[in-house]
Design a protein around this nucleic acid. Structure first.
Lengths: 243, 243
DNA sequence: TGTTCAAATTGACCATCGTCAATTCAATTA
DNA sequence: TAATTGAATTGACGATGGTCAATTTGAACA
């Protein structure tokens, strides 16, 4: 499985590059010491599972490098890809904060380095530092807002509009920043993954992509996406874009 | 609009019947005093709007009596009914905790009495009592788990299966408790409301209800729902129930 | 009791999208 | 280079469910 003692990367929470982008930025030195003690670093290869739906919560995962996909699967094998987790993000906090077992699975999409902080440590930190709780409250609440928005979109928008919206979100997170003009980005996502991010099938995904290409909205070469003009995507997503 | 000084009901947070069921159950007397000072009671009639999507957050709402629906609407007028809020529930906390404007609207479905606690009071309590933060973390995290589940369901289940699932949830919350045998409950929800809870149209809702009645799964008289045998509903919801 | 109005239902139609099967493509390995 | 394998695409088909319009129901009220 995953390495327990990798050779490279930051050695502890004090020197961690990603720390300022995480919830831990509100901790003082004594608390960081505690965090550092409750920490184990692990590495995963693409396809390796970090935790499984139904597993008891093992702690909170801090992504240092790589990328992780969070999936939810039903009894029929249908699944949705809920989140892409990137460096500086925390993973698995929902189950821990809800006091539940995991209700989704996490899988490395790239070679990934993660610090695992055990449950008692996180709990202790939360019980003594209200600022940390507020940080997590903000994170979970924003995530809930996004999930609620997704529920509305899935209920009201077409596959194509949902995909346009997904592309906009991905550009915002992973593309070179610029409000207009051409953009490009690459993600370790199969067509199946893309499909399950907007709640559709790989077949419909293929057809939608083909149509968008012939309409000049986007070009897809393997896993690289090229958008000639962002503004056109925005129009696709906006309701009632009668051309 | 709403009354500012209603005559009946509990007069303060100390005597409030619902308090033990709310997040405030972790507060000590000094904190309750603070809570009580930051509080204003309001009453709403059915149809009255408590807050609007896009409004800046005014505080946290504590439901004492009645029922509130939380809706999210897009530019086309399509909407989803996300939550039914009942006594003991808190309302509007997501926006406040995320530090955002409201991303959904809240509307009274019944005559409703609500205490509004202003933002500075809630913030102050959260900053000084980590246990309160943990309570809210649990609530938001469970809500997020449910929202994620809904995303999966909407992507993979038929309208009928989603409706069966909705009925099971409603029975669990509002029906007389019993694992099997007949159950009955009534809710202040129009067909349109029911439809928007599972992301479909009133027309499809009507047809689904009709079909379920002719299949003997449930009977609908106005806003009263009668379920002869819960186990049948469970089978409807479970994947691959090939009869 | 009749009138009114919105909600609910019903019917007809068909577009979108899921399903299944066949084919092509691309990456990997022998 | 050929063989293998899974991913991706394409085609064909049909069901689910959305849309629009017409009708019915039912509650509130004069």
């Amino acid at each position: 499985m995953a390495d327990q003692n990798p050779g490279q990367g930051s050695l502890n929470c004090f020197t961690c590059q990603a720390r300022d982008r995480t919830e831990w930025c509100v901790l003082d030195d004594a608390e960081l010491e505690l965090l550092n003690k409750g920490r184990v670093t692990k590495e995963y290869l693409p396809g390796e599972v970090i935790f499984h739906e139904g597993d008891p919560c093992r702690g909170v995962f801090c992504l240092e490098t790589g990328m992780v996909g969070v999936r939810k699967t039903d009894a029929d094998g249908n699944s949705v890809l809920l989140y892409l987790v990137t460096p500086g993000d925390t993973l698995g906090y929902r189950a821990m904060l809800a006091g539940e077992d995991y209700r989704a699975s996490a899988e490395a999409l790239e070679p990934t380095r993660i610090c695992v902080i055990d449950v008692p440590t996180v709990r202790s930190l939360l019980e003594h530092n209200p600022a940390l709780g507020l940080r997590y409250l903000k994170r979970v609440s924003m995530s809930l807002g996004n999930a609620e928005e997704k529920i509305l979109h899935n209920a009201t928008l077409s596959v194509r509009a949902r995909f346009a919206h997904l592309l906009l979100v991905l550009i915002d997170k992973y593309g070179e920043k610029s409000t207009d003009g051409p953009t490009e980005f690459e993600l370790p996502l199969s067509r199946h993954d893309l499909a399950s991010m907007i709640g559709t099938t790989p077949e419909s995904m293929s057809r939608t992509i083909k149509k968008m290409e012939s309409d000049g909205v986007a070009r897809f070469a393997g896993r690289t996406v090229h958008i000639p003009e962002i503004e056109i995507l925005v129009q696709e997503f906006e309701p009632d874009h009668f051309v």
